[in-house]
Structures are given as structure tokens and as C-alpha cells.
Write a protein that binds this DNA or RNA. Structure first.
Lengths: 238, 238
DNA sequence: CGCCGGTTTGACATACTTCAAGAGAAGTGG
DNA sequence: CCACTTCTCTTGAAGTATGTCAAACCGGCG
């Protein structure tokens, strides 16, 4: 595990200031957090936390993408969450990590030691409130994903995944075609997220290219050339 | 929707007193809840809350089993949660219901109007803490279910479902064979929970009977005749 | 240049679904 | 109490989406 400790940009100018756990904090609270935080960075592929490990710090994702996943004894693995900018890692009040946390791309985290962070939850309602709000969102998206895993076809799964990525990373103009998008995951990681095999992911992606919905400039870089068709392919209600 | 309002048993003698949202409350807080609560009962099959509806009350399950589910336009449905005794229904801080809540068996709920309940969250940390704890559990089990939906075989899904039911409803002696168990769901509902068809559920259940793991006295009533085999069939690590 | 991980593509296998028919239970009304 | 309907469940036969196995491709990097 990389232990690089970077310089700490000020909370006031932080890019995730308004969406992370600290979103509701007032200047005083922010100053207190400022003193507690440590930046850590991880290279793509590095494990950030192992399942079963003691929880020593919690963190916000400042940059990059991490995946939360669980692996069975025989190697089958399922991703149970994709952590993007401003998402929170860790479960205050719990002793251990339940799922592996792995950097999918290079990642920068804003970390807080568990103890002082829990103390802060206990006496600053702004943090606790925001945390509950974020956990509620997590729970909703986990349940949404259960529908995807249990009932959607491979094509619908891929379309839903791409649509979700775009909504999260480019909230502006959601129905417009998009250029220069980047897949933060390999085919295999996408497969693990969607409960498929990497071959099926590859075939569906190329199928959507044939159907004029996507076009690839590179294995990772692509454009959405027909957003309405992509949305229709998700199987979700309009 | 049934609006039967039952007499309110005292919180002090309530059977879910130590596991529900109110678990940590002191006598004063309990008295305050006592004044707010209303019991409601629903017949099996009745809808308790519809997706999209405004959230007017939150509740604890006192008796019976409810299911939380989502249905796609074309009728495919996925259960995203099974609500058993002492489980909490509702999302404080949210305006709307995200998933349908339906009584699977006859159900009795202990309901609180949203407004006063949220006020109570704001000023009694015991409730807020317990709520966070329960949400964290929900999130963990949702993620556990994602692994099941995405990666497990039909047999593993059924075994995991039965094992989970037994653990929740009979926590004592978890590795011992069990008699007189009852399935709270129809084959179709089990299928919706596990991302299968009802035919596959039926075949797997009868397969486990043939294999000497289960025996049925009735379509709903059964015994576990080989608990180690059931546990092994879940595919989970020991 | 030649490896190497990630990806594509093809041929084949299969777990699960779909469709269909029938058997029990369980309720309903005369 | 018995037809009659209605649901739930079982069982079989056939179909298919997706998985598995294997080979070849490709772009990047030492």
C-alpha cells in the first residue's frame, strides 16, 4: 500500500467541497477537519483496504475511481460499488472492512483517522446528517443495482452502466450525445460490476458500436453517438 | 390500504424493544415515542407503500414479513429487501418512496408520522445512532445480495436464502438441523428475490429434498435435515 | 523488436428460461 | 357439502442468452 502523503490543499478551494461528507460544514467545522486530514494516493491496481482488516481511517475520493468488491473462495468476484469523486469510503461505528477497496485508476484520497472522525460525528450534526444522506443514496443505488443484476439482460446492463457513468461524471445536458468519454474500468472489471463475463461485455460493447450507439477511438475512449438509443437500451422507465 | 388502528402495547413489554430503532432509547425517550406511535395491520398481499408516493410515516415491523421491490415497465420484478421483525421501513430525510413495500404475510407495523420522527432524530442521538447502525446493516446485506445475484448459481441462491432466513428467525444453534420452519414467501416471490424464475425455484427446492437436505410437510412448511450440507451449498466461506 | 496484458472473435456447452400441461390446495357460492 | 374457479406448485420438453474454452489480435513498453 502506498503511503505517499501529499500536501493538503485547503478545504475552501477543494474541488469536492460541496458534494463530499464535509458539504454542510461551516467554516469552524471545516477548520477542524483541515487539521485532521491527510492526503494519500494510490496507483491503479493497488489495494486500498482489505476485507477483514481493521478500519483505521475513513476517506473521501478526491480524484480517480476505486472499486468495492467481494471475492468468493473459488475466485468468482462481484463488484458491489464504484467509488467516484466525492464518494465516501468507510463505515463509522464498525470495526472491520467488509469489502475489498481497490484503486481502479490512480486515486487520491482525503483521509481521516477513525477515532477523531467518529468524535466529530458525535458532536457536529452537519457531518452526521450529510453522512446519513450519503448512506441513503448508497443504499438506493445498491438496490437499483440489485434490479440490474437480477433482472436485466446483458445489453441493458451495459447501457445502464454507461448511462450511470455519464450521469455521474457529466451531469450537465444528460440527454445530449457525448464526446471523449473514458471507461475507468477494464472489460473484466466491468464484467465483475455487471455480473457478466468479460467476453460478453466485449461483445455487447462492439454490438452497440455496430448499432451506431457508440464509437470507439481507443479501447477506453469513446463517444455516445445516439444518446436516446442508449437510454432506451437501459430498460428503465423514462 | 388497511387503516386498522390497533391498541398500542406498551413499549416496555414490546417484543422488538431491543432490536428496533428504539433499541437504545432511555425511559424518557421511550415515553415520547409511546405518545407518537400508531399500530397498523395489513393482510398478506396488501401494498403498504407505493413507489413514488409521498412518505407520510416510517415504521418498524412488529410482526410478519414485508417485501421491498421494484418492477420494470414490462413486468420483470426484483425484490431488493425482505423486511422481518424489528426491521425499519422508511427513509427519514427523503420526500418519496423509492420502492414498493408489500405485505408478504399478515403484517403489524408500529408507525410514526415522519415530521415528529424527524424532529426526534434531530434531538435524540440514541435514535440517530441506532438508525445509522441499522442502515449500515442494510447496506451490507444489500451488497451481500449483489454477490448472490451476480455470481451465484441457482442452487447456491436457494441455499443462501434459506440459511439467511434461518439465521434471522432462529439465531440460536445456527449449525443444528431445524424443524417446523415456514417459508414466508411463495415460489414466485422467492424467485423475485433471487433473480430466478419460479420454475427454477421449485426444481431446486425439490432437488434439495431429493438430496436429503430438506423435507417438506407442506408447500410452505419444511425441516432442514442436513444443515451442514445446506451451509456448504451456499457457496460462502466458512 | 518481441513480449505482455487487455481485448476481440469464433465455436461450442450449458444453466437457466420459456412454454405448456396438469395436479393439488384453497377458497367461493349455491 | 359439493361443484367450480382460482391460485400455487410441479414436471417435462424445447429454446436461448450467456458462459466457457481457445486462438488470434493489438497497442504499449521495456
Amino acid at each position: 500500500m502506498s503511503l505517499d502523503t501529499l500536501q493538503r490543499p485547503s478545504c475552501a478551494t477543494c474541488q469536492i467541497r460541496h458534494r463530499a461528507v464535509c458539504a454542510r460544514c461551516d467554516p469552524n467545522e471545516l477548520e477542524r477537519l483541515e487539521g485532521m486530514k491527510i492526503y494519500r494516493s494510490y496507483k491503479a491496481g493497488e489495494t486500498i483496504m482489505w476485507r477483514g482488516e481493521a478500519l483505521v481511517y475513513v476517506a473521501s475520493v478526491v480524484e480517480g475511481v476505486a472499486r468495492l468488491s467481494k471475492t468468493m473462495e473459488d475466485g468468482r468476484t462481484q463488484m458491489v460499488g464504484l467509488l467516484l469523486q466525492s464518494d465516501f469510503i468507510g463505515r463509522p461505528g464498525r470495526k472491520n472492512i467488509e469489502f475489498d477497496v481497490i484503486a481502479a485508476t490512480d486515486v487520491v484520497l482525503c483521509c481521516f483517522a477513525v477515532k477523531p472522525f467518529e468524535a466529530m460525528i458525535a458532536d457536529t450534526p452537519h457531518i452526521a446528517q450529510r453522512l446519513v444522506e450519503m448512506m441513503l443514496d448508497e443504499l438506493d443505488s445498491a438496490r437499483e443495482w440489485m434490479l440490474l443484476l437480477g433482472r436485466k439482460t446483458a445489453r441493458e446492463k451495459i447501457a445502464t452502466f454507461l448511462h450511470m457513468l455519464i450521469r455521474r461524471q457529466h451531469p450537465e445536458l444528460p440527454e445530449k450525445d457525448k464526446r471523449d468519454l473514458v471507461l475507468p474500468l477494464t472489460r473484466e472489471e466491468i464484467a465483475d460490476y455487471l455480473g457478466l463475463t468479460l467476453e460478453t461485455v466485449s461483445r455487447q460493447l462492439n454490438g452497440m458500436k455496430k448499432d451506431g450507439i457508440l464509437s470507439f477511438s481507443d479501447r477506453r475512449r469513446f463517444d455516445v453517438t445516439n444518446m436516446p438509443a442508449l437510454i432506451a437500451a437501459t430498460g428503465d422507465d423514462t
